[in-house]
């Protein structure tokens, strides 16, 4: 199956710095793919290139099988949805008026407004002026606008950065539903919990380079220190994940001293620090 996004040796250079330094990855239909990295690592630059807001310096970038340079037309833009940290909402208009404009631009029925506002938990606020909304509510309106036309491919740049845990959960549920309905999602975030909870695969990006790409589970296994922590009646003990460790566990069970077993897998944040020497924040 042809990937929806195919990026090969992509670079973006500015006068005195390379924002992207030969990154390569593929995203297949139906995936939620996470781009995890700290501020300034190249996440937003990648999204801007993939959404044809920014020209790249070199490399091959294909979306829906076509070179990105040829993708800037109504047909392509009608197939993608974009959510960035800048809301881009008309502050003097109501939520409804903002979404009505985009219904007309995308040629979709007005009834869809009610559906998306229900999905982002804002149906009761649709006549409220955008300037009266909190930052989190604006972010939800922006998401509603991004999914209004049921895009095949959705780009989310830090989608829940301004949200409280309850609304973050709402957005995550909406994104999962959208993904189940067939939308491929490209998510950039520096929130490892969000990446782990939503993404099927993750790429770690740092200083314009991709350091690792895999499923969250595989990344943790690959970077595990192969030890197991045992909670016993005498306290906690760490053993190797080998024959000697197995013998020790068997012995503790036989003596009735073993209370719990925990495999020592690192968090995605720990792995990022291992790979780059930097924190995700």
């Amino acid at each position: 199956m042809q990937p929806i996004i195919q990026v090969n040796q992509l670079t973006k250079a500015y006068a005195n710095k390379k924002a992207l330094n030969g990154i390569s990855f593929q995203i297949h239909k139906g995936e939620i793919f996470g781009f995890l990295g700290p501020s300034g690592s190249g996440k937003t630059t990648t999204v801007k290139i993939l959404t044809s807001q920014l020209l790249h310096t070199s490399g091959d970038v294909r979306v829906f099988g076509n070179p990105i340079a040829q993708s800037r037309h109504a047909h392509y833009l009608g197939r993608i949805g974009i959510l960035t940290d800048n809301s881009g909402l008309y502050e003097r208009l109501s939520i409804y008026d903002n979404l009505e404009l985009f219904c007309k631009l995308y040629g979709i029925p007005i009834q869809r407004i009610e559906e998306v506002l229900t999905e982002v938990n804002l149906a009761a606020e649709q006549r409220t002026l955008v300037k009266q909304l909190s930052k989190g509510m604006k972010q939800r309106v922006t998401l509603a606008r991004a999914i209004l036309h049921k895009p095949e491919l959705l780009f989310l740049d830090e989608p829940t950065s301004a949200l409280d845990p309850v609304n973050r959960q709402h957005i995550h549920e909406a994104l999962r539903k959208l993904n189940e309905a067939g939308t491929t999602i490209f998510l950039t975030t520096h929130d490892m919990e969000e990446a782990e909870s939503l993404c099927g695969r993750i790429a770690f990006i740092n200083g314009g380079k991709i350091e690792a790409i895999d499923t969250p589970q595989q990344l943790r296994l690959n970077h595990s220190d192969n030890t197991i922590t045992l909670t016993t009646r005498q306290g906690r003990v760490t053993v190797e994940r080998d024959d000697s460790g197995a013998a020790r566990i068997a012995e503790l069970i036989r003596k009735g001293e073993l209370l719990a077993i925990h495999s020592n897998e690192p968090t995605l944040g720990d792995i990022f620090v291992q790979l780059t020497g930097r924190n995700l924040q």
Partner: peptide, 11 residues
């Protein structure tokens, strides 16, 4: 307000 960018990224 970044609304022009959003319009430009619409059809």
């Amino acid at each position: 307000k970044h609304t022009l960018r959003v319009l430009m990224l619409s059809p």
